[in-house]
Amino acid sequence: MTTDIEKFGTRNWGMIADLDKCTGCQACVIACQAENNIPINTQDRVERARSISWIRVERYWEGDFPDTKARFIPVMCQHCENAPCEPVCPVYASYHNSEGLNVQVYNRCVGTRYCANACPYIVRFFNYWDPVWPESLRNHLNPDVTIRSRGIMEKCSFCIQRINRTSREAKSEGRELEDGEIQTACSAACGTHGIVFGDFNDPNSRVSKLRNHKRAFTLLEQFGTDPNVIYLAKVDPNRNNSEEGHH
């Protein structure tokens, strides 16, 4: 009698981020902050470079005035198929599950920070302090997400609480998940619909189609991490006219 058991492990979650649509507006950053109970990055924490943001929008300068260009790229955990953070964890707190997620198990973590050192994308964050909210601000905390205590690592989970909730709903209603039904906080917030989330194992999903886009590339491909986050390159109509403007 296993008919009613949730079918687990048939999916491979992934994300597409279209850099050509990214306007650097930070909507995804705050949406993530609100969804995942990330502690307030106080000025002190920012100054000490210990602020936590599971997704950040990096800005890179190219060229010089008057031809300056600023390029934006949202960077979150890449959920690498071949993740450098996983083999280094002495307590298996960082592992890969069968749905393609790189999972951080908070209650296993003992805070060695090896994973943060191994990660080339620098998307793992250590809780140097207990998270503190003033009494009344606790009201807006998301009850679906664990509050991480001091001394453990945390990182983007692809909003696994949303994956679980939506899968559960679909199961309960006896139907299959539809493509696009699960939205991570960042993909829902993205002002230009530039972040798309979905199942790579479904050949008809939007992410599967975009994965083969001619502009598709992965971040720091030379490290061979095989990320599940695929970026679509920024288009610059002037690129072929000018020399490379990198510095």
């Binding site: 058991i5 599950n97 069968s98 664990t146 989970s157």
Partner: peptide
């Protein structure tokens, strides 16, 4: 016993 998922992320996230 019931062949339910025992993936960590089922309960811990």
């Amino acid at each position: 016993d019931n062949e339910a998922p025992t993936d960590c992320a089922t309960c811990h996230h």
